[in-house]
Design a binder for these strands. Structure first.
Lengths: 131, 131
DNA sequence: CATATAACTAGAAATCATTACTGAATAGAT
DNA sequence: ATCTATTCAGTAATGATTTCTAGTTATATG
């Protein structure tokens, strides 16, 4: 890993992801910080998010659009098929699963568990597709 | 769902995914079928794969590049971090998890479980990054 | 403090997977 | 055989992400 220098952008990006509960995308982080740092560039957001994920400072959630989680402890996630929001899933994550998946020469070191369904907000509004 | 007409392309695409164990991407399916159907178009592959996934005839594996699985029974998958191959993961899939994740208003209807690590082929070659 | 230098940035262009569009081809009904 | 809606090939458009380049800036050192 490269030597590291302080960067205001990086720390602001980290803070935003860390404090958010929304598992934001790079675009979301950019939109939130742009007013505060008007010269901020989207490329900078992508670069730093990805870098902090590599360093283990953030968690990267795979998907068609990558999302980031400031909580790096392994846990399950929930994607609402109606509104697209990503939340933490309660319980349901078994850290022992990696060991269980090590069979026939496979060596699992981590896993992602993503549930799909309806979030509380969307369940309330019933058939409506807004939230 | 729309009325359905027979299409040679669709059936060939289905057969290729069904018979393959590689959880192919759209590009892979296209490359395999192109010699056999020279006029085949990549858009056709995407359209039919996605359509069959909606119909429940194929399973779509989320990720930065979408992969397809001819086995529609719920099961876990394994991504090799070295070679990128996607395989079926043995055991480790608990269908009861969806019910367990239904808490605080969340309604889970399905989930994906993806392990990451080293596949048997890559484990053998040790440090080499080819397979 | 001054300055050197490697790390960092903004902005824009390039890339890659995927989707949308358009006119031609074709399955299947009459 | 003819008609018509579905499907197709080919191409252009899109959207997320990466890369590139020249300019900034943190920080080590004199």
């Amino acid at each position: 890993m490269q030597p590291q220098r302080y960067s205001l952008q990086r720390e602001k990006i980290y803070a935003v992801v860390r404090e958010s509960v929304e598992h934001p995308t790079a675009e979301m982080v950019f939109a939130w910080l742009k007013p505060e740092i008007p010269r901020l560039s989207l490329g900078t957001v992508y670069r730093n998010l990805h870098r902090m994920a590599e360093e283990g400072r953030l968690q990267e959630l795979p998907g068609p659009i990558v999302r980031f989680d400031g909580d790096t402890t392994p846990h399950a996630h929930f994607t609402c098929l109606t509104c697209g929001r990503v939340s933490d899933a309660i319980g349901s994550y078994d850290p022992g699963l990696d060991a269980a998946a090590c069979k026939k020469g496979f060596r699992a070191i981590r896993h992602t568990l993503m549930f799909y369904g309806t979030c509380p907000q969307c369940a309330k509004v019933g058939k409506k597709d807004d939230c």
